[in-house]
Design a protein around this nucleic acid. Structure first.
Length: 331
DNA sequence: CTGGTCTCCTGATCGC
DNA sequence: TGCGATCAGGAGACCA
């Protein structure tokens, strides 16, 4: 489940593959994965019932369209040269210039972006030539371009020693792609997110928490409050800061908010260093697993011993999420 | 406006 | 061996 460290790891492994290269062709294999400009969907989730309308067949026969669905090619950056791969919170933006020679804009190729939200099981993977041809990938965990869960595919301008194909894979389809026509639109989209969690400081976190009567864990998971934290790193940060997940955000106080901000930064930075946590699906753009999962202190360890005090870790649902904490160390 | 609940989706796992 | 139930959860829609 990609949270900030996993998305940042994908960004770092993807940028060297993409930046400076032109996207020769892009194909969308499942329409409802893309949010195009003008789409009434404000957010990132697919329209209610859209799947059923697009695929009236029963579940048993509902399969991915055999051919790409029609879409404005430039929405998927076809013809553009990638200039940057950005991240805010859990969202990635692949920034492209061009395509060159757009009518009416003779001189400067305009910049646009494709924003990728990975959701639960989403991944962007750069494929080695063999895998891109649909052959079964040798490397364990590597994507297969023929997988029914590949929803979009990009062919890149050839470059020596670099993968020539990128795919968007997402079995659960909680993720999606969003076509963003200008950089101003990208700013507008990202202005609805809170500050990036990797750079959160005490005063800013306290400012965001002090007016909230929610449990502090619910506030941490709110991307408008803080961008990038999901269930795993929320629990880890709360443990490090010694804050009980159900404590009301507004009652934290500025000092403990500063402790929590430092814990959020610390755990995320360490996780980035370890290239993220792989529980099941997550891989970076080269298909490699992360290693931070072996260092989780509380996530997934309900009923086991606290690494700090040896007591039994407690597990309960907080903010609609399974939550694990140490009742003795977090009070 | 706020916070809590529902919903989307597939695959892994478990009990029988 | 098969099969239904359960769980995982990011985040928008919806509702009190």
């Amino acid at each position: 489940m990609p949270e900030l460290p996993e998305v940042e790891t994908i960004r770092r492994t993807l940028a060297p593959v993409l930046v400076g290269r032109r996207i020769l062709a892009a194909a969308l294999l499942r329409r409802d994965v893309l949010i195009a400009p003008g789409d009434p969907r404000g957010g990132f989730s697919r329209q209610r019932g859209a799947t059923r309308r697009d695929h009236p067949a029963s579940d048993a026969t509902r399969v991915r369209p055999a051919r790409p669905v029609p879409v404005a090619p430039v929405d998927l950056l076809e013809g553009c040269t990638v200039t940057d791969v950005l991240r805010r919170g859990k969202q990635l933006a692949i920034v492209g210039a061009g395509p060159a020679g757009t009518p009416g804009r003779a001189r400067e190729p305009s910049s646009r972006a494709l924003v990728v939200q990975l959701g639960m099981t989403g991944a962007l993977e750069a494929l080695a030539p063999g895998a891109a041809n649909g052959e079964h990938a040798r490397r364990a965990g590597a994507a297969d371009a023929a997988s029914p869960h590949v929803h979009a595919r990009w062919e890149l301008e050839p470059a020596r020693g670099r993968p020539g194909t990128m795919v968007f894979i997402d079995p659960r389809r909680f993720g999606c792609l969003r076509a963003v026509p200008t950089l101003a639109d990208l700013d507008a989209l990202w202005s609805s997110l809170g500050p990036d969690a990797l750079e959160i400081d005490g005063p800013r976190l306290w400012e965001a928490l002090r007016g909230s009567r929610r449990p502090v864990k619910a506030a941490l998971l709110d991307q408008a409050v803080l961008a990038g934290v999901g269930n795993i790193y929320a629990d880890e940060a709360l443990f490090r800061a010694g804050v009980p997940p159900r404590k009301l955000a507004a009652r934290l106080g500025p000092r403990r908010a500063a402790d929590l901000a430092a814990a959020v930064r610390g755990v995320l930075a360490e996780a980035v260093e370890a290239r993220g946590s792989t529980l099941r699906d997550y891989r970076d753009a080269a298909g490699r697993a992360g290693e931070f999962q072996s260092r989780h202190a509380v996530y997934g360890r309900g009923g086991e011993a606290c690494t700090r005090c040896g007591g039994v870790l407690r597990s309960a649902v907080v903010a609609q999420r399974t939550t694990v904490w140490c009742p003795r160390c977090q009070r």
